[in-house]
Design a protein around this nucleic acid. Sequence first.
DNA 1: ATTTTCTGGTGTATTTTTTACACTTTGCTC
DNA 2: GAGCAAAGTGTAAAAAATACACCAGAAAAT
Lengths: 233, 233
Amino acid sequence: MEKEKKYCYEYPRPALTTDCVIFGFDGLELKVLLIERGIEPYKGRWAFPGGFVQMNETTEEGAKRELEEEAGLKNVFIEQLYTFSDVHRDPRGRVVSVAYYALVNLKEHPATAGDDAKKAQWFSIKKIPSLAFDHEKIFRMAMLRIKGKIRYQPIGFELLPEKFTLSELQYLYEAILEIKLDKRNFRKKIKKMNLLIELDEKQQNVQHKAASFYQFDKQKYEELLHKGFNFEI
Amino acid sequence: MEKEKKYCYEYPRPALTTDCVIFGFDGLELKVLLIERGIEPYKGRWAFPGGFVQMNETTEEGAKRELEEEAGLKNVFIEQLYTFSDVHRDPRGRVVSVAYYALVNLKEHPATAGDDAKKAQWFSIKKIPSLAFDHEKIFRMAMLRIKGKIRYQPIGFELLPEKFTLSELQYLYEAILEIKLDKRNFRKKIKKMNLLIELDEKQQNVQHKAASFYQFDKQKYEELLHKGFNFEI
DNA sequence: ATTTTCTGGTGTATTTTTTACACTTTGCTC
DNA sequence: GAGCAAAGTGTAAAAAATACACCAGAAAAT
């Protein structure tokens, strides 16, 4: 029996979904969180978490809800990426998707799966499997965005634990930009921005000289955001 | 009698529209094209051209279609801006709008109105009237985008006639960025980019020394885009 | 015919920013 | 205490950004 179709409109409407590219950093590699699809279409293929937008929520709220339901993530940095609307992007019919990207600190959000019993897994951006729908296109766009964005806004801190070393920060920039950076020049620039607070604390249980921990100075950043500033690496 | 509602779905769906901020430059000021609304809601208020997305077109195609229908504009530069989805942004019900911005050469597209008998008018960005829906929010976002974009991509050329003088180009940058630029330094940078072709032609019927016309070298630009480059002013 | 007005067009010196580059320090392991 | 591994640090050279003022040429006004 066909399911009841009780929401009727004068003109046809596309379905509206959100999808979210969740970036995480484990100290070495940049990763994204993928969900294995349990149903057709693309059953068994990997995809970014996402779902239908409800009538009483914005697309951003919808994306955040899905983030929590499918990946168990709450209170993360999220920003709109792009709206994908190819007529045939979903074999089930006309579906328009507002894509977001999120940045999470992977150490505080490990292997992970949400309430749903779906299989979730972090993949290095260097080894992404074949994806469902147009999610490869979404991924490419998210990579471009994060590469561009990190050069003029300190979003990198969203990917790190509260306390981090300068080397960790540099590895993160190198992982996102996919280039090598000069240690001395990197530190010079970072320090000139005046957005870091050096803590008294140092690394422990490392088999080499212990590095100082730093913290991001959110208050100073807010001030600078208002005045307009540049964060070029 | 209520209109027939023949498109039925299992779950409710928001309506999907596009809106387009059309920027034009008249040689002095940056302007946007607004349409006076002929019907409720917001009857008599100004708004950006837009309309419902059809089932056989992407949102970009829909935005282009509206551009032609409502403003008589064809083959213009257009790019996605942002998707606006506040639950109460439209008093008629749940409407999600994918906003675009377009750049047109105002001299080749004067006062203008499309097939629709709607009233269309160019407004200086310094004197925008009160707008319908959340269009003031859309406008602010479009201004931020164009200001950011023009610093690293030569989109300015879309706003100028095919042949233009260096002063016209500088006025355009000043109008978009809302700052004054130094003439010699501006010319130095523009010339170093190597994207302009100086023509043999000069201004005519001007009551001062005639300026040389220049042309944008699209071929070189395409090459550079692939290699990745910077267009900082 | 001369002067005025208006915009076009040009170069240099100074400061700031970016880049390239190598050794010492520290703490642990063996 | 020798070896290892990453932390941490400065300077010189090159490149880019900035500040700045006058002459050229065409038309209009006198």
